[in-house]
Design a protein around this nucleic acid. Structure first.
Lengths: 221, 221
DNA sequence: ATTCCGTTGGGCAAATTTCCCGATCTGCAT
DNA sequence: ATGCAGATCGGGAAATTTGCCCAACGGAAT
């Protein structure tokens, strides 16, 4: 029952949990705290709070679900890494699309584990990233391996980050005015992206774009 | 440590957990077993196993995530209810689409709680359905209430046969030229239908139309 | 330094959307 | 029969959007 107020660095691994679902978060917390060298020092339910919590708690490992409403979890990872290059972020995601995994590591994540993995895999991954290593669950490794074998599998590889974000919002059903407002762009720029995305991916209709986005794990339903 | 082999009915509430994500399932289990009148008597990770587990354990309440790979969770609910009309199934879902909620209750669910709810809401809902009542979390109630206010009831009821066919093809990704050709219409007529469908359903973008079509079972993926 | 690329937008003709309307062809009730 | 309601099919015209080009800027790579 060491409350680890001043400096828990010597004892165990201080963890920040980020997930927008309270029940799910509670669940992880209990699972993780069963390991007696783990201490969940803070929780957050969105990207902004995650960054704030990171600043004030300086956890050893951030365990983060990147599919959150509002600002992308990738944003949060970048913010955290910008502030502390030694920060360890372990992404804990529902999906395991190659593009998403790459994006996560590109943003500075140290690990990627899907929610379909066994608890033991999560725990092992947390220990690994705390040690400074990189880690990913078996299914993620398999997806990534398959992806590296195919030449142009994802279709998202050819899209820039902004383009992907706009594709996601289009697929989510947002109007271009909403997207422009969300991203602080002119509607004209959003239109241009919309055109560019269709040109790059070879899709002819918006419906095809939605299907593409869903296939790539950018959107659900 | 009562193993509840012969009859735990008198003591507490026997629960069957169904969710395809092991870590998530473990998490709920711990959260629920913190209530000392709850007993998680079995777990299942898909619809078929859920039905088998229900038969052999006869739980008081089944807590089920309906978004599982393979057979629909709705199928599982229907199977369970077909075998035991008194079975209580509480759906514990990621999303809270009005259509999904209705489908769940239509299949025989006694409650619907989203994973975004507070643990206390889940726990209260389990107690309620165990008592034979119906329960849903606040956000689900809000979504359902909003839905019942909109004139777009089932969304498809207000569409004619041709309109539905065109909506399906739009959702399938066909261009209006392809649709016109498929149905022997002028592209102009297809355009008019496209407009009409959006007007009738209240959808603003094609992406929203795709989602609507998918929700209504008109298109898959 | 220079080149490439992602991002942001302007411009403008061509295409599309958005509504409005009328014409058939049902079925159904008067 | 007659009429009425509604589904289906398209014309027309204004408003809007798309398709595609170009320009400017900052950052990363060379």
């Amino acid at each position: 029952m060491t409350t680890a107020k001043t400096g828990a660095k010597n004892a165990g691994i201080a963890i920040l949990l980020v997930d927008d679902h309270p029940v799910v978060r509670q669940g992880y917390r209990r699972v993780l705290e069963h390991q007696d060298d783990f201490h969940v020092v803070a929780e957050a339910d969105n990207a902004a709070n995650a960054y704030r919590a990171f600043k004030s708690h300086q956890p050893d490992v951030v365990v983060m679900d990147i599919s959150m409403p509002g600002a992308s979890g990738l944003e949060a990872i970048r913010n955290i890494r910008a502030r502390d290059a030694d920060a360890r972020v372990l992404v804990f995601s529902m999906h395991s699309e190659a593009a998403q995994v790459k994006a996560a590591f590109g943003a500075g994540a140290s690990g990627f584990v899907t929610k379909g993995s066994e608890p033991a895999e999560l725990i092992a991954a947390i220990r690994a990233v705390a040690r400074g290593e990189h880690a990913m669950s078996d299914d993620v490794a398999r997806v990534l391996a398959m992806d590296s074998l195919t030449p142009s599998k994802s279709a998202l590889d050819q899209l820039g980050e902004r383009e992907i974000e706009i594709l996601r919002q289009i697929a989510a059903g947002s109007t271009k005015e909403q997207i422009a407002s969300n991203l602080n762009l002119s509607t004209k720029t959003v239109q241009n992206y919309h055109y560019l995305i269709k040109a790059k991916t070879g899709m002819r209709t918006d419906a095809q774009l939605v299907r593409l986005a869903v296939e790539c794990g950018l959107a659900n339903l």
